[in-house]
């Protein structure tokens, strides 16, 4: 139930109602209506985490890249280490 997956913001409607900022998010092509009242700073094209109809956070592209690069490097270093051990 707590599962939430990242989706891409397709549209956002301007709204003066603080409890209802309607928008649309695409999850691999499937569109859903999402309320952005907890994430008014989101913009079209952002990836956001949506749970039971509300957007809860933005996926931070910089953090995502850093983690992946770090893991990639770690993997490569580790491979070097294990090859050296074999020698």
């Amino acid at each position: 139930m707590c599962l939430a997956i990242p989706g891409k913001v397709i549209s956002l409607q301007p709204s003066s109602d603080k409890t209802n900022i309607p928008g649309k998010v695409s999850f691999g092509g499937i569109l859903r209506e999402v309320n952005f009242c907890f994430l008014p700073e989101a913009g079209i094209g952002d990836y956001v985490l949506v749970h039971v109809g509300v957007a809860l956070s933005k996926v931070d592209e910089k953090e995502a890249m850093e983690t992946l690069n770090y893991l990639q490097e770690m993997g490569e270093l580790d491979e070097l280490d294990s090859e050296q051990e074999k020698l």
């Binding site: 990242p6 993997g75 491979e79």
Partner: peptide
Amino acid sequence: MKYLSEYRDANLVDALLRKI
């Protein structure tokens, strides 16, 4: 899909398992 497939990458999974 963006932000999903990268985190299912078999090479990264292997590297992490080795490291653990």
